[in-house]
Amino acid sequence: MNSPLDSTVLFQIGPVPITQAIVTTWAIMAILVIGAFVLTRRLDLRPTRRQAALELMVATLDTQITETTGAAPAPYRGFIGTLFVFILVANWSSLVPGVDPPTAQLETDAALAVLVFLSVIWFGIRAGGVGGWLKTFAAPNPVMIPLNILQSLTRVFSMFVRLFGNVMSGVFVIGIVASLAGLLVPIPLMALDLLTGLVQAYIFAVLAMVFITSAVEDGARTQPNIDLAPSPTKKDS
């Protein structure tokens, strides 16, 4: 059995090695995009069961964002929702025989963490400007600047490590058990891995949302004109 820390390179595009995780990611992207396109082709004012289920999912996500951050969900829905769906599908892709989940590779989780780190900066600057975002590092006083910078790095790093560790360990344990006890014994562990994948996707999305909201709120405090409270009349389109 190969080390879970190693990436299997399938082919090279120039200097870029294309690993199995990347190909799996492309496949997941294709499935998600095509599935989303197919599912959202015929949306009507009188929803079908399919449309009602999709709307329930989006409404639940919006509610989760609003309850977690207290902010209007529209600006964050696409990023947070896509993170959750992608990580969930990636985690559950381990159920397909012969497929290793992309989130079991360091590069994928690191890329997700980097995106969360950059999105925190992006939303923070958009809420309070560059000055407002930089001032968040001096809160509550300038002495905290080094610690805040360190915190902004370590919390993202912890997300990345948490996701990688959980998914990778699950895949590794199932692989070990399957190699030792055949096909049926790993099934409970695979079911547990489903739950783990769901929980990890949820945790990753919620933490990303919390980090983004924290940056937005801190930036907004330096810009008193910005209202973070969700407006009931604001359109979430």
Binding site: F37, T40, L43, V58
Partner: peptide, 10 residues
């Protein structure tokens, strides 16, 4: 193709 259309439908 997903979030905006559904949110728009809502």
């Amino acid at each position: 193709v997903f979030w905006r259309p559904i949110a728009g439908a809502i």
